[in-house]
Nucleic acid binder design. Structure first.
Lengths: 160, 160
DNA sequence: GCGATGCTTGACGTTGACGTAAAGGGCATT
DNA sequence: AATGCCCTTTACGTCAACGTCAAGCATCGC
């Protein structure tokens, strides 16, 4: 456990946090503008404490689970310093539940799409068998590709 | 099977399609603007054929599975009339796969959140047991609430 | 003829989360 | 002294997918 990051005197520049979390300075200033961060200053320059860093982590995690900056701020405002983490966790779970509902709707669409796809394939196959039997191998390939996609046995989530 | 809707002479006004699919006229005109629909005209007025209607269905379904209008247009442009449906199905499946990747990332976040939540609960309990044993019942309630959320046994997705 | 509807086009507004450019201070190296 | 880099602020731009007027035909029933 890196107590290093917990030591109160440990501070961060804006760029340090940006590179650590793959954010941009503009984004951090934007969060500050929206009242999500309030780093100290050294002259003009922002100085982020380990607490600010923890908050930033919460902000980014909140975003990933689908919270808007507005919602995140409300969480921060509603609950005191003490258990921001716990409060956001509760919210995150709620949001996640909602997202699951949306996903189930989408899965229905997908299921419909898959059904149509199979039907279309069959139609096409019958059509080809009738008119252009010479093209049948290709159609079989296409169908095979689709089945593979559905089963998820190929393309190990190719990078980028 | 409602051949009614397949008969070429069957046409639709903008409002008919809007009410059927719960869209707005503005939206349909917007899709047209973006080259996704090209209804005929009767004087000034748009006249949607059953083909236009089929395309609209594809547009809406595409949106539901996470395609942007731009992407939908590309599908329409790339593949001819013939198998728009099949083309979009392939795209939809791809998009859905990508979405699953994102979701798995989010699930990781959620898992982390849950872990933190439990840890925090335990810390709090120990703290209370030590300093304010009188408050322990309430803490137990809170913990109970959280467990309920996680298990998903309450709040039957209350309607708006 | 008149108002109510429903259609049209055009143009500007909205929301969220920043991007991007302009203009400048501060500090270090050359 | 000049260059370069990082920081700052202010302010306007962007993107998607429409919403929201505004202004104007056209048709209907009365």
């Amino acid at each position: 456990m890196p107590t290093e990051l917990r030591r109160p005197e440990r501070t961060f520049t804006i760029r340090q946090l940006c590179t650590e979390f793959k954010a941009t300075p503009r984004a951090l200033r934007f969060y500050e503008d929206k009242g999500l961060l309030t780093p100290a200053r050294d002259g003009m320059n922002r100085v982020y404490s380990y607490k600010d860093r923890a908050r930033l982590i919460l902000i980014l995690r909140g975003k990933r689970v689908g919270l808007s900056l507005q919602e995140i701020r409300e969480i921060f405002e509603l609950y005191g310093e003490e258990d921001e983490v716990m409060a956001q966790n509760a919210h995150s779970l709620k949001k996640f539940k909602e997202k699951i509902v949306v996903l189930e709707q989408q899965r229905e669409d997908i299921d419909g799409a898959i059904a149509e796809l199979h039907e279309a394939c069959e139609r096409l196959e019958r059509h080809l068998a009738d008119k252009r039997p010479d093209l049948l191998p290709k159609a079989a390939d296409y169908d095979q590709m689709m089945r593979a996609r559905v089963d998820g046995h190929n393309e190990p989530v190719a990078a980028k």
